[in-house]
Every structure is written in structure tokens, then in C-alpha cells.
Write a protein that binds this DNA or RNA. Structure first.
Lengths: 118, 118
DNA sequence: GACATCGTGTACTAAGTAGTACACACTACA
DNA sequence: TGTAGTGTGTACTACTTAGTACACGATGTC
């Protein structure tokens, strides 16, 4: 039972701490608005990942991509979920179509949509 | 406080019932594996929508699109969520890019990806 | 040697999720 | 007139989520 979320944030926090001692469990916990013991447990995988709101605060604190942290926590951002729920057939079809395609193909698609040439 | 999910399935069930009397609350409930009183409450919005598994069974039973029913229930299929979680940056970027585009644009994209010409 | 800070162990909780179990009153029909 | 089927009200429960509160011993530091 590895706890990828906890391991990841502990590692990131310790790295930041080498440069800045305010990245202790206690102080980071306080900045994101949880009890130190809770963050400690989360990092060690003894407690499940916190709520989306706390994960977003943690992402900002650690300078990480919020969607990546949410993914490690087994979650998907509620704003993405809402976009899908608004047009379920369309987005379901698209995601299932892209699911098995290689990264570079999906990335190319993202770029082309962004640039408008498609 | 409208309960879109409940209202929708009640309407669909009653329509099917006009042709087939086995589409009663009790019998549908039994076929999808819940207590009749629970399905009754769900349809009247007195209980929140059931779990994803029951919603999928209900979709099959009523001949509706599972993703649409899940969306009405405020959920997103776990297999779509998993696809997103595997490549969070890519899918997050794509969905946010498409979020504000009109249906026809997204639909065209789905078709082009499906046909491979893009 | 007092004081601050550190990570963590233990105990607890309030709210939400996903239902079950059973009884009741009503309707159709044979 | 009994029997089968209908929808629904009430009461209850086990599990999960998302944490808090507080105490403890270790470490550093002045």
C-alpha cells in the first residue's frame, strides 16, 4: 500500500526546506490551514489525502501543478468535472477516444486547439 | 431545490411503463438491486442519487446514456476520471481549452480524432 | 537549564454516503 | 372478499470523509 500523494509532498517539502526552514510540517500545515498532526499523517500515508481545497493550497505552497497533486490524491478537479457534466456525451466520447493515444498525439491536439488551426 | 436526476428517471420510467407494466418502482428497484422505498425517494429527490454502479444499472434498464445519467446525478464516470488522472496536465489543458467552445466545435474535434484525420 | 520548535501518537467527532428493513394505506381483479 | 401488487413514510445503520485537540518525547539554542 504505497501512498504516492503523501510520499510526493513530503519529498517536495523537504527539498524546499533545505533552502527555507519555514517548510516544516508545522508551518506548512498552518499555512494551508490544517493541524500539524494531520499533515504528518497525510505525508506518511496514515491518513488519506485531504480535501481538494487543501490540496490546492498545498500545490500553491509547494509550487506544484494542482492537477498533478489532485491526480496523485486520486481526485479530479471539480472545475474539470463540471465541464464534463455540462456536456457529458461530447466529453465522454473525446476522453475515451484519447485515452489510449500516446502523449505526443494528445499534446499535439491540445496545441492545435489552443492555436485554433484545426 | 429541483432534483433533476430523480425527476428525469421518474419521467423515463413512467413512459416505459405505458408499454410495459414491469416498469414499476418496485420491479425496477429489484432489477437494479435496491429497495423500492429507496428508489422512490431518489425519484422524488428525497434521497440523493445512488452510487455510480446503481446509476449504470438504471441507465441500462431505462435505455439511457450512462454518462448523461451520471451527469444529472452530479457525477463523472470513474473510468473518465481515471483517464484524466493518468495524464492530468494534458487532459486538464485540453478540457479547459474546450470548455468555452460551442458544441459543434467540440463535436467536430471528436469526429476528427475518431477518424484519424487531424 | 529553561524555552522554543519539531514530528508524531492517541482519541475523538460532525457530516455525508449509500443504502436496508418494515409497515402502512391504496388499487385492481378474480 | 381476499390476495397481489403499488408507492411511500419512518427508523435505523455501517462506512467514509475530513478533519480537530491535545499530549508526548526528542532536538536545538540562548
Amino acid at each position: 500500500m504505497s501512498a504516492p500523494f503523501g510520499e510526493f509532498i513530503r519529498q517536495r517539502r523537504e527539498i524546499l526546506r533545505e533552502e527555507d526552514p519555514t517548510f516544516s510540517v508545522r508551518q506548512v500545515a498552518q499555512r494551508i490551514g490544517v493541524e500539524p498532526s494531520f499533515l504528518s499523517k497525510v505525508e506518511r500515508g496514515e491518513a488519506p489525502p485531504p480535501s481538494e481545497a487543501k490540496i490546492l493550497a498545498l500545490a500553491a505552497e509547494l509550487g506544484e501543478d494542482p492537477d498533478v497533486l489532485l491526480a496523485l490524491a486520486g481526485k479530479v478537479s471539480t472545475d474539470l468535472q463540471e465541464a464534463i457534466r455540462r456536456r457529458p456525451e461530447l466529453f465522454a466520447a473525446l476522453i475515451r477516444e484519447l485515452r489510449d493515444m500516446p502523449d505526443h498525439a494528445v499534446l499535439r491536439l491540445v496545441r492545435e486547439v489552443r492555436d485554433g488551426n484545426w
